[in-house]
Design a protein around this nucleic acid. Sequence first.
DNA 1: TCCATTCTGGACTTGCTGGTCCATTTTCTG
DNA 2: CAGAAAATGGACCAGCAAGTCCAGAATGGA
Lengths: 212, 212
Amino acid sequence: MPQTPTAKGRATRARIIEGAAEVLRERGVAFTTLDDIRGRTGTSKSQLFHYFPDGKDELLLAVAQFEADRVLEDQQPHLGRLDSWESWQQWRDAVVERYERQGDECALGALFLQVGRARPGARAIVAELMRQWQGQLAAGIRALQANGLVPSSALDVDRTAASLLAGVQGGVAIMMSTGDATHLKAALDTGIEHLRAMAGAPGTATTERNCP
Amino acid sequence: MPQTPTAKGRATRARIIEGAAEVLRERGVAFTTLDDIRGRTGTSKSQLFHYFPDGKDELLLAVAQFEADRVLEDQQPHLGRLDSWESWQQWRDAVVERYERQGDECALGALFLQVGRARPGARAIVAELMRQWQGQLAAGIRALQANGLVPSSALDVDRTAASLLAGVQGGVAIMMSTGDATHLKAALDTGIEHLRAMAGAPGTATTERNCP
DNA sequence: TCCATTCTGGACTTGCTGGTCCATTTTCTG
DNA sequence: CAGAAAATGGACCAGCAAGTCCAGAATGGA
């Protein structure tokens, strides 16, 4: 652990994290060894321990943080601009697309299970991700309210955001297990529809797809 | 692999599965060895391989099936009788209680990740569990419809059930990560409330807790 | 240029863990 | 009772993967 890492050092460290993330997504945590990561990133054993003195756990934690950052990034710019029904629909499509592309490997979930719930670091990463995610959803609902698209009363914003987030998480989890995105789509559509039903026009609360 | 297992043999096999399930829930799959299971169940190495010739994977798969069966059992009899608002509320409470008691170990999720998505057996167990679970929820919604509590039109039963199931899964997943059941409760309450909003009485669709 | 620090290579060690093997005991069947 | 099949105990093996170590190369500042 150098006191002042050089540019080269930082680049190598980043390369290790990104390469490790790749391998972990492909093979899964349980089947990935340090040698796999070493091979993929073109590094040596000593480099791995040079940049992550606490060994595999520290590396996995760094990868987890890396992946957590990507989760919200991949939903931008839609997630940050949920102020119209169109933007909600765009966000919905972005989420579905992102997770369908990711396929069946839950990078974060797997990492979390491997590092262990005992370790406080893992919990903190996931908890913070959920906090931010839910915060952005809540902000989106408030933006709808501000634009008069949803009445301000008769709706617990934080609870609704929490519910929607849970639906997305569960939809993704089910997709990981079954390979089917039906539940994810159902959760998103039902959640958005629930918001629309709050709006003045009662006709929008049907089961039809919402088209702009 | 005996051709005709003895009563004693079956008992031992069951003891191994149950004991293994305990250990796995406590320590997590990644940190559980066959020796741990051997110790807990009071068996010898040869017994483990006698009853599970394909080794650890086969044992883990058996435990996964065992856990999957428990998931639905623990929600009965409520899950099978979702024909009134009271019964939905009772089911909701049972789910919250069950998962709050289970704490932070997602037995099935962990097992699934460890055995590997490549293996078809793991996928099948989870997929079948989800299918049955969603089926019972859908049956519950139809029961509401049959009792005239929810209008038959203007509601895609299967999609609503899928959405609710996703919410529960996500709520549980978030609780595993953060230790907080807020999202699980939010998903359940919002989902049930969504159904109530479909009913004729618009006043029921508020954010108040539903009391019988 | 010189020296300290950082970075890299790769051989080596070590502990653990899944899995094997065989001898022995128990249980079922006829 | 007798033999076969099933159940059990536990020593043993082999491979693997995390982690250690040290020598040497690159780098940066004075």
